[in-house]
Design a binder for these strands. Sequence first.
DNA 1: ATGCCTCAGCTCCTGAGA
Length: 256
Amino acid sequence: MKLATWNINSLTVRLPQVLDWLAANPVDVLVLQELKMTDDRFPFEAYQQAGYSVQCFGQKTYNGVALLSRTAASNVVKNIPGFTDDMARVISADVNGVRVVGAYFPNGQAPGSDKFEYKLSWLRGLRDWLRAELMTQPSLVLMGDFNITFDDADVWDPVGMKDQIHCTEEERYQLRALVALGLHDAFRLFPQPPKSYSWWDYRDFGFRRNRGLRIDHILVSDALKPWVKSCIIDKTPRRNERPSDHAPVVLELESP
DNA sequence: ATGCCTCAGCTCCTGAGA
């Protein structure tokens, strides 16, 4: 079973690229972030023709997430139960016996800002809900655009970005607290190329210079960890014309 | 650096992203 996450920064712009990527990478599950469109505009037919069933949770202009799966998804939940939120950031469903949580974590803008405080409270809300969710759904994958680096290995310029957004101790503490629920950073279960990132700034030739951050993650639960076969960042679509600023992350699970 | 690039929208500038 293969699962992937990709922040596509506007589905309107990136639809052909997503379809091309799925044709070349026929994963079982793909979660998307930053659709930037409402559900009534979602291109359901294009995905159905590609062999995917679609669960989407859109929003105008900002945010918006979707979950595509080759087999039907059940028990679909939108956003974080118990945490009131205006924004469309989370979509969860059961697929092939795995609880899949696709999430677009808040950006946070700058430490000390209102958006930063919202990010921290959102993270606490997510953790409270996931703690309970793991009790009833031990086979769980949390994946998406976390907008947080684990440590300096995830940052192209750790000195320049020290205590900056995505790299603050408060954010990293929240990320470690999620992991402490019984989750594992699938990417680091394997040897990886040095300076592996999942996002590069559009400005200043960020991708060409590999000035990036690893902020898109796949966390697997204790129960699933023994089945993880590989986890990679696919930089191929970042070389497209008009690429998303994020690359997809792909997880391969051995079927139990 | 109040900059760089990209996207959406009450679109020819602004807000947001990261």
